[in-house]
Design a binder for these strands. Structure first.
Lengths: 191, 191
DNA sequence: GTCTGCATGTAACTGGTTACATGATTAT
DNA sequence: ATAATCATGTAACCAGTTACATGCAGAC
């Protein structure tokens, strides 16, 4: 009767982010809106709370930085214990990918509701993911103009970016398939 | 100051499942291990708890069915109020796709740990998703041999299945990209 | 004067995970 | 004997969401 203890991974996401570059809670929240956050979302409240706990555990340390014209900020950086924990966590088998997609559930239950409203929903999701894909491709072109030459950290960041692109492309192809199939289906029913 | 209230979607997943076919908590847990569950995971404890609440809310009703040689089971089915709620929920804009992938986080932080251990982890994930993809393709071939002729519920189920296939293919392509790139990187460093 | 950005948090709630608990039947 | 499948749950805990709360600076 074995049992893996997964979870509490936001701490590790923050550890990775702070190991790349020290930063404040606010700034981490911005970073989690982009890059890292696309694979691991987190709200600012969650981030502040977790930073406090990690500071208490001695994984990170905090320095208050006064600024002119702006509120003070607390800049956190990874300490020795945090680096040990990061290493430990990296060596651990990672938990399976979790996908939670309400839209696919609605597609599955589509016959119990209004199909045209649902199609509008699919179109909206498609638009959103199309925008995100464009953003990813822009970032890719700007930050990694010559992928063949990358190594180390830059290569790792590039590979994660690639994952985002591949997934978004897949989603969009899927939305198109849904729209085509259900559009034909609606026409077939009303004709 | 608008605010969408998302969440509590397991109830709706169960509503969709029970609208397809009435069933017990145990049986729903089995179904959530397959098909629906790939896009919306849920443990049996969660399912039992939620079924109880939904019964209390009058969305579903329960009938105890005695069996020979097996424990009694409680078979739930969707009632009138549940069907109303299902309709209401279907018309609502659906929450964005949530992806939580620890592995991509580890790739990003790879330089702070042992790369070969991480590559093993990527290989394991690849194997798991390859198996799942094979399963999906088997199901597709068995249940939907002639996709062009589908309509209604069968078409909707097929489309969700297609989403699974597209996503798994994307993930596997990504894992291969990672393995190729990091394998070269490791060789470059040790050479 | 109003909105956006910077910057930090608390409190209440909801949803999800883990561990524990029981007990019969069937197959190896 | 031992494990797997069928079948149901409770309790404690942990993680994530939503709402509320404050306050300054600079742009329009």
């Amino acid at each position: 009767m074995h049992c893996y203890v997964f979870g509490m991974a936001l701490e590790h996401a923050i550890l990775v982010a702070l190991a790349e570059r020290a930063g404040s809670g606010y700034e981490l929240a911005r970073r989690f809106d982009k890059s890292i956050g696309f694979f691991y979302g987190a709200s600012h409240q969650q981030i502040y709370r977790t930073l406090k706990r990690m500071d208490g555990d001695g994984w990170i340390s905090c320095e208050t930085v006064p600024q002119q014209g702006r509120p003070d900020k607390k800049v956190y950086s990874v300490g020795a214990d945090g680096r040990v924990e990061l290493r430990r966590w990296l060596a651990e088998p990672s938990s399976p990918t979790v996908l939670r997609d309400e839209l696919s559930l609605k597609i599955r239950g589509a016959s119990h509701g209004d199909l045209s409203v649902l199609l509008e929903d699919v179109r909206n999701h498609r638009t959103e993911h199309q925008l995100r894909l464009q953003l990813y491709r822009q970032l890719e072109a700007r930050e990694f103009p010559d992928p063949g030459t990358l190594s180390g950290m830059a290569l790792h960041q590039y590979l994660v970016q690639r994952g985002g692109i591949v997934l978004e492309e897949g989603l969009i192809a899927w939305y198109d398939e849904i729209l085509t199939a259900l559009h034909n289906d609606v026409k077939g029913l009303t004709a």
